[in-house]
Nucleic acid binder design. Structure first.
Length: 635
RNA sequence: GCCGGGAUAGCUCAGUCGGUAGAGCAACUGAUUCGUAAUCAGUAGGUCGGCGGUUCAAGUCCGCUUCCCGGCUCCA
């Protein structure tokens, strides 16, 4: 029989040869590194015998599927260790995930993070035993009986729901798990792993179900890669915006003031203001009009919009003089009221209202997380009202706006479309049209996207933009939501060319999303070292001795006059100490001033990254850095 | 909201068996006038998250509670 490989080459083998033997015939390195294979499009274990001519692709840790197989096998090794230590533990599911794997386990005893070391030791034993993973295909009924006998209730439940007549199970010595596979040849492959933490997780992700104990781990083919990954985690920890926010004195979130509410200190408030000014300018340039709505609106308004019915549990309410009010969790209401304040013609459209709107949402206590998840935050929100003919162009305009702004910060991004959720308003037909409009805009812009079924807002489907930061982490910020329902509820109209009244379509959209969250993401993206235009202090003047203080002050005055943000350190401290402090504050430029500089009317320039840049006249320094000190202006 | 862990000086953290709290950095005072990542000495600083209980005695043990951290669910 003939086996064809991905490069198009082929070889002849006797029928019945195993994939492992095929790999060996090609080379010892492949035989060592192959984890599983794809045979005519389906995944298979290396021990699988090949009976007919086939196309074969071997999977190593270099392939995405290979990594998944490897991590999946790792989770089985962990599960086996857990069963040795906790024989009554019932296993739920144990899939591979980004950078690792987990297993959900139902066991009476609490497994703490210190127990993870014991489980790791047991895993080491299992790895050194090099136990083969053996696949068996059982009739459904037989598999059900097997797991019933073992008391594996969750597996039984899973099997019961399977459509197939047969179920594959994998044995590792005396440990058995129901599993589609494939797996690596034996447990000896899983040499480089670490268990990271424990967590609670609902069975099947449903908060009405029992909470299981989830054990998270990571595993890599190579020890080096494990080390690199653990270093990456350390790096992420160093960039944590909550830690940097405190160190750089940007903001605080205090128990006494209320959870989920940020208090911006001068430097944090300054960065926010710079971002907001940048946004206002860019919006005005793109034909948006800045508007401002009130923080509270009468409850009736929220009933009319559907927020009271669909979003109540996230809202704050208050009562004044026997009238009930809702504190705004979104900005759309005022914007619709402005639209409705006079008769609109098709000639007026599109209308784009922009508001840096501060909203309050009652988020569940367990979800709050620094600036990334707050109960009060400010959105760079806009509502675009347009005709059906304009819809495509408006969506594309927003997408391009997002593209331009993300370029400024150096983010790559992916896009995702979310469709109608269960709790929602509007007709199916409108949802269909809205979803199509979003898709069409992405096709037209040639932007690939994934689809997230049932994840839209209650009033319409949306495009979410997922950013990728400097160390590869993903964040959700921008979103565009297409809405036919609210214009209907608020009876928004325009007079068309035909003299008839028509319903406009509304787009809800944010670019940065929440300014607060975006700032948190930026802190982590830049590791606190903001580009000069965003840095709260752009230049720090450091004197060698107090004999240069007068000259240093004149330099500071000049720079402030030029519009730079400047601080001076005139203390009687050694220069090394002052540099160290300025570096910890991540100030982009340090100007070192001694008698030499004073005599020459110059400054010694030091950059936070490259260090000493040598002497320059003050004028030359100003000329060189002016451009990077100013906010970018987009085309 | 749920599961697990935690809260000690401004910050980072130690505190043994229950016996009335400690370090480094920061702050303050003094000395030092110094050339590219930490000068030296001294002083001050605490309702041990909050409330209650056990005890002769609680930072330490128990209960409740608030907030934080890691997840789950949810989300800008």
């Amino acid at each position: 029989m003939k086996v064809t490989f991905p490069d198009g080459s082929s070889r002849e083998y006797d029928a019945g040869i195993t994939l492992n033997q095929v790999a060996q015939s090609i080379g010892p390195r492949l035989a060592r590194e192959a984890l599983a294979a794809v045979v005519d499009g389906s995944l298979a274990d290396m021990s699988t015998a090949v009976e007919d001519s086939a196309k074969i692709r071997f999977l190593t840790f270099q392939d995405e599927e290979g990594v998944d197989v490897f991590r999946h096998s790792s989770s089985h090794v962990m599960a086996q260790a857990v069963k040795r230590l906790y024989p009554e533990a019932k296993l739920a599911i144990g899939p591979p995930i980004q950078d690792g794997f987990y297993y959900d386990i139902d066991v009476e005893e609490r497994i703490s993070e210190t127990d993870l070391a014991r489980i790791e030791e047991e895993m080491a034993r299992i790895v050194s035993e090099r136990i083969p993973f053996t696949r068996k295909v059982l009739p459904r009924q037989e598999a059900m009986e097997l797991f019933e006998k073992l008391g594996e209730d969750y597996k039984v439940e899973l099997i019961r729901e399977l459509e197939d007549d047969t179920v594959s199970v994998y044995w590792q010595g005396d440990f058995v798990d129901m599993c589609r596979g494939p797996h690596v040849p034996d447990t000896g492959y899983v040499k480089s792993y670490k268990l990271l933490h424990t967590a609670g997780a609902y069975w099947r992700g449903d908060e009405h179900n029992k909470m299981l104990q989830r054990l998270y781990g990571t595993s890599w083919f190579d020890k080096k890669d494990l080390k690199a990954y653990l270093d990456r985690l350390e790096e992420a920890k160093k960039r944590d915006h909550r830690k940097l926010g405190k160190e750089l004195d940007l903001f605080s979130i205090l128990e006494e003031a209320g959870p989920g509410f940020v208090i911006y200190h001068p430097k944090g408030a300054l960065i926010r203001t710079i971002l907001e000014d940048f946004e206002k300018r860019e919006h005005l340039k793109r034909g948006y009009q800045i508007v401002v709505g009130p923080q509270l609106l009468k409850l009736d308004m929220w009933k009319k919009s559907g927020h009271f019915e669909n979003y109540r549990e996230n809202m704050y309410f208050t009562e004044v003089e026997d009238t009930q009010y809702g504190i705004k969790p979104m900005n759309c209401l005022s914007h619709m009221l402005i639209y409705r304040s006079k008769i609109r013609s098709y000639r007026d459209l599109p209308i784009r209202y922009f508001e840096l709107g501060t909203v309050y949402r009652h988020e569940k206590s367990g979800v709050l997380h620094g600036l990334l998840r707050l109960r009060g935050f400010t959105q760079d929100d806009a509502h675009l009202l347009c005709t059906p003919e304009q819809l495509n162009g408006e969506i594309r305009g927003v997408i391009n706006f997002v593209k331009d702004v993300m370029g400024v910060f150096g983010f790559e991004y992916e896009m995702e479309i979310s469709t109608r959720p269960e709790k929602s308003i509007g007709s199916d037909e409108d949802w269909q049209r809205a979803t199509e409009a979003l898709k069409q805009a992405l096709y037209d812009e040639e932007i690939p996207f994934s689809v997230n079924e049932g994840d839209g807002a209650f009033y319409g489907p949306k495009i979410d933009v997922i950013l990728k930061d400097a160390i590869g982490r993903m964040w959700q910020c921008a979103t565009v939501q297409c809405d036919f329902a609210l214009p209907e509820r608020f009876d928004l109209e325009y007079v068309g060319q035909d003299g008839q009244r028509h319903r406009p379509i509304m787009l809800h959209r944010v670019i940065l999303g929440s300014i607060d969250r975006f700032l948190g993401v930026l802190i982590e993206h830049y590791a606190g070292a903001f580009p000069a235009w965003l840095a709260p202090v752009q230049v720090k003047i450091l004197t060698i001795t107090d004999r240069s203080a007068n000259y240093a002050q004149s330099v500071a005055e000049r720079l402030i006059h030029e519009g730079f943000r400047v601080e001076s350190d005139l203390r009687n401290e050694k220069i090394g100490y002052k540099i160290r402090e300025a570096r910890l504050e991540k100030v982009p430029y340090m100007l070192i001033i001694g008698e030499k500089e004073a005599a020459a009317g110059a400054v010694a320039v030091r950059h936070r990254e490259d260090g000493d840049r040598g002497l320059a006249s003050l004028d030359r320094f100003i000329g060189n850095v002016r451009a990077e000190m100013l906010p970018p202006v987009l085309e």
